[in-house]
Each structure stands twice: as C-alpha cells, then as structure tokens.
C-alpha cells in the first residue's frame, strides 16, 4: 500500500530531517491501521530515540496526527484503517520538537 508520510514541527528531526517520505507498506492479510503503521515506522524509519516519537502503542502525547488533513480523533484514532495514497502528517507541538 502506497502512503505519504509527513513530519513537521520538529518531528522531522527524528527522521533524518526529512519532512516528506513516501512509503510502500507490504501487503499482508489484515488491513493496515495507524496502530500497525506506528509499529512499522518504529521498525523501519525510526533510527534513534524512539521514545521521543512513540509512547506505548501510540504517538507521544503532544504529537498531532492528521490523516489527509483531518484530525485523527475524528477518524477513530489508532484504529483508523489506512487507504491507498493516504497522507499521514505527524506534527510535534512540543517545545524544541
């Protein structure tokens, strides 16, 4: 599945200062959700300091998640089922990123 990931507000500092990444998730039997995407990000993109981005099975509080420019709270949060070509934006609102 093809997705665009964006990192802003300092979150990009954890991903080699890259603000935009396009990724292809492997097809598996179950559908992808934000929850499983976060696990994939931690294993594949996040090279250092995972605790600054992920806390428990979610993102660290203070990081805002937007799916196609819509607040993820409106979309069932972690359980949102990803669709082809979705744009997922992670904005850190924490001080210093």
């Amino acid at each position: 599945m093809h997705l665009t990931l964006e990192f802003a507000g300092g979150a990009e500092l954890l991903f080699g200062k890259q603000k935009l990444q396009t990724i292809d998730l492997p097809d598996n039997n179950t559908s992808w959700t934000i929850r499983t995407l976060l696990i994939w990000i931690r294993e594949n993109l996040l090279r250092e300091r995972p605790e600054l981005f992920i806390q428990g099975d979610s993102v660290r509080p203070g990081i805002l998640v937007l799916v196609n420019d819509t607040d993820w709270e409106l979309l069932d949060g972690l359980n949102y089922q990803l669709k082809e070509n979705d744009n997922i934006l992670f904005v850190s609102t924490l001080h210093g990123g």
Partner: peptide, 26 residues
C-alpha cells in the same frame, strides 16, 4: 494543537524547530 492546525491549513512553515533541549528526552 489549534496553532499546529491553523499553520497546516494556511501552509505556514515554521523556520526553526530546534532549541537547546531538542532530542534531550522527556
């Protein structure tokens, strides 16, 4: 959060996100 959302909707880019505490942990 409201500021982050407003910036996103109006394509306002912040120029500097790092400060002396960046990457230092919670």
């Amino acid at each position: 959060k409201e500021i982050a959302m407003y910036n996103r909707l109006n394509s306002i880019e912040s120029l500097q996100n790092a400060d002396i505490s960046t990457m230092s942990g919670p």
